[in-house]
C-alpha cells in the first residue's frame, strides 16, 4: 500500500532534515557547524575572489590615485586660501585698530631693474593718495608715495638708496637717519659712539621731516660697531618688511589728523 510513496521518502526525509535545521538555528552546535563550513568556504574561495577582483581593484586604485591628486591640489588651494584669509584678517584688524586713516592698495607692478626700489599700487589721486604719504604694512614701514597717477601710484621703498627716513631708537630715543646701503639691510646713521645701542633694539620713525608719522616700526638692530671716523656708530638694521613679498599695502592718507 505504501509502495507508491516509496520514491518520495528521500525527499520527505530531506524536507524533515531541512526543517530540523531551520528550527534549530539557535542551537550552538548547529551554529558551530555553520561557522566551520563558512570559514572553510571563505578560505577556499579567498584566492579566487582576490584574483577576480584584481581588475576592479586596479581600476579602483587608479581612480583613488586620481582622486588623491585632486584632493592634494584642493588641499593646497585651501591652504593658500587659509593663509590669505589669515593675512587679510590681520590686515583688516590692523586697519581697524590703526590710528591713521589708511587706504589699501594692491601691488600691481615692481620695478624691472635689478635691486627692488619701487612698487606700483593700484590706487591713485582718485583715492586721495598724495606724494610723500607713508606706505606701511601691519609689520612696519615700507616707503613713501613717490608719484601719483589717476588710479595708480609709485611707491619708493626703503631699500632705495635715495630715500632717507628720520628714525629713533626706542631703547634710548636717539634720533638718526635710516637709509639703504644697497643690500637687503638698512643703515642707521647719526648716532654718537657714546650711546649704548644693542642688537635687537627697535627702530621707529621719529616724525621729523613731516613725511612719515612718528612711531612707525622700521626694523631691528642686528649689528652695532664704531664708524671709521670714531665719533659715530655704524648700526645695521634688519627691516621689518621683506620688500620682495609684498602684495597689499596701506597708504597713510590722513596722517595730519592724528599726528
Amino acid at each position: 500500500m505504501l509502495d507508491p510513496l516509496k520514491p518520495y521518502v528521500p525527499w520527505l526525509a530531506a524536507i524533515l532534515l531541512a526543517l530540523g535545521l531551520i528550527f534549530s538555528n539557535d542551537n550552538t552546535q548547529v551554529n558551530a557547524i555553520r561557522a566551520g563550513i563558512s570559514d572553510c568556504i571563505v578560505v577556499i574561495t579567498h584566492p579566487f575572489r582576490t584574483t577576480l577582483q584584481a581588475p576592479r581593484v586596479w581600476d579602483e586604485n587608479k581612480y583613488l590615485r586620481k582622486r588623491l591628486a585632486e584632493m592634494s591640489l584642493g588641499l593646497a588651494r585651501l591652504g593658500k586660501s587659509g593663509a590669505e584669509c589669515e593675512r587679510l584678517r590681520r590686515m583688516l584688524d590692523f586697519k581697524q585698530n590703526a590710528k591713521y586713516k589708511l587706504t589699501a592698495g594692491d601691488v600691481i607692478a615692481r620695478n624691472p631693474e635689478s635691486g627692488l626700489r619701487s612698487l606700483v599700487l593700484n590706487i591713485g589721486y582718485m583715492d586721495s593718495i598724495k606724494v610723500n604719504q607713508a606706505v606701511i604694512t601691519p609689520e612696519g614701514l615700507v616707503g613713501r608715495v613717490h608719484r601719483v597717477n589717476k588710479e595708480s601710484c609709485v611707491v619708493q621703498l626703503l631699500s632705495d638708496p635715495n630715500i632717507g627716513v628720520a628714525g629713533r631708537l626706542t631703547s634710548n630715543n636717539e634720533d638718526g637717519i635710516v637709509h639703504s646701503v644697497g643690500s637687503s639691510d638698512l643703515r642707521f646713521d647719526g648716532v654718537p659712539a657714546t650711546v649704548n645701542v644693542e642688537q635687537g633694539d627697535s627702530l621707529v620713525t621719529s616724525g621729523s621731516g613731516n613725511v612719515f608719522p612718528s612711531n612707525l616700526f622700521i626694523g631691528s638692530v642686528i649689528e652695532v660697531k664704531r664708524a671709521s671716523n670714531g665719533w659715530l656708530l655704524d648700526i645695521r638694521v634688519q627691516p621689518a618688511v621683506n620688500y620682495r613679498l609684498l602684495d597689499e599695502l596701506f597708504v597713510i592718507s590722513d596722517a595730519d589728523r592724528t599726528r
Partner: peptide, 14 residues
C-alpha cells in the same frame, strides 16, 4: 536560516 536553501534546492531538484 540554515536549512532554507537546502529545503528549496533539494525540493526543486527532486
Amino acid at each position: 536560516f540554515l536549512g532554507v536553501m537546502s529545503l528549496s534546492k533539494s525540493t526543486v531538484a527532486f
